[in-house]
C-alpha cells in the first residue's frame, strides 16, 4: 500500500521533472540586464539567441522587494507573457518561458519590450528593450524529404523508360514482320 502510494506520488511528479533539464542558473545565460526600481535592484537574465524548437527563458532576480511588480514581456510581433514579482522577500527569483514553437522563421535584432509596473499604483517604473536573434537550427530531416521525393521521380521515370523501351521493341517487331 505504502509502496503504491510512493509510486503514485513519483508518477504524478514525473511531468514536472522534465522542467529540470532547463538551466535557470545565471551562468546559463549569455546576457544580464540591470534595472533599478524604486528601492530594489532587478537583474534580468536571458539568451540573446532564441533557437526555434527550444524553450527560451527570461529569469528575473530581484533583491530587497517591498513592493509588488507586474512584469510584461512582449515581442514586437505581439507574443507576450507576464508575471508578478511579489514583495515581502529579500531575494526573489522567477522566470518566464516562451515555447520553441513561438517562431517559425529566422529574425535578427528582434525587439523584446520589457515593461515593469508597480502593482498597487499601476505606475510604470521601468521600460526597456532587448534585441535578440531568432535562429532556425539546421534541418536534419531534409535528407529524408529529398529521399522520399527522389523515390517518386525515380519510380515514375524508370517505369516510363520501361514503357518506351517496350514500344521500341514492338515497333521493331512490326517492321520485321512487314519486311
Amino acid at each position: 500500500m505504502r509502496i503504491g502510494l510512493i509510486l503514485v506520488i513519483l508518477l504524478s511528479l514525473t511531468p514536472f521533472s522534465s522542467a529540470g533539464q532547463y538551466c535557470h542558473e545565471d551562468n546559463c545565460f549569455t546576457n544580464r540586464g540591470y534595472i533599478h526600481l524604486n528601492e530594489e535592484d532587478l537583474y534580468v537574465y536571458y539568451n540573446s539567441l532564441f533557437t526555434i524548437g527550444e524553450n527560451w527563458f527570461v529569469v528575473f532576480h530581484v533583491t530587497g522587494t517591498d513592493n509588488d511588480y507586474d512584469v510584461d514581456l512582449s515581442f514586437e510581433d505581439g507574443n507576450s507573457k507576464s508575471l508578478t514579482l511579489p514583495g515581502g522577500s529579500s531575494n526573489y527569483t522567477d522566470s518566464v518561458s516562451f515555447p520553441g514553437s513561438t517562431f517559425a522563421s529566422e529574425k535578427f535584432d528582434f525587439n523584446l519590450y520589457l515593461t515593469i509596473t508597480q502593482s498597487q499604483s499601476g505606475e510604470v517604473v521601468a521600460n526597456s528593450t532587448f534585441k535578440i536573434d531568432i535562429n532556425k537550427p539546421s534541418d536534419d530531416d531534409m535528407f529524408y524529404l529529398w529521399g522520399g521525393m527522389t523515390v517518386f521521380w525515380v519510380a515514375i521515370g524508370a517505369y516510363v523508360l520501361y514503357l518506351s523501351s517496350q514500344f521500341r521493341e514492338l515497333n521493331k517487331k512490326v517492321e520485321r514482320i512487314e519486311k
Binding site: 522563421s105 531534409m142 529524408y144 524529404l145 522520399g148 521525393m149 517518386f152
Partner: peptide, 21 residues
Amino acid sequence: GPAKFFTAPNAQKIFYFHVPS
C-alpha cells in the same frame, strides 16, 4: 511552410505524394 506539430516538419511534406500514391 514547415508543418507544425511534427518531429520532422520538412519530411512531413512527403505526405503530399505518399498518401496519393
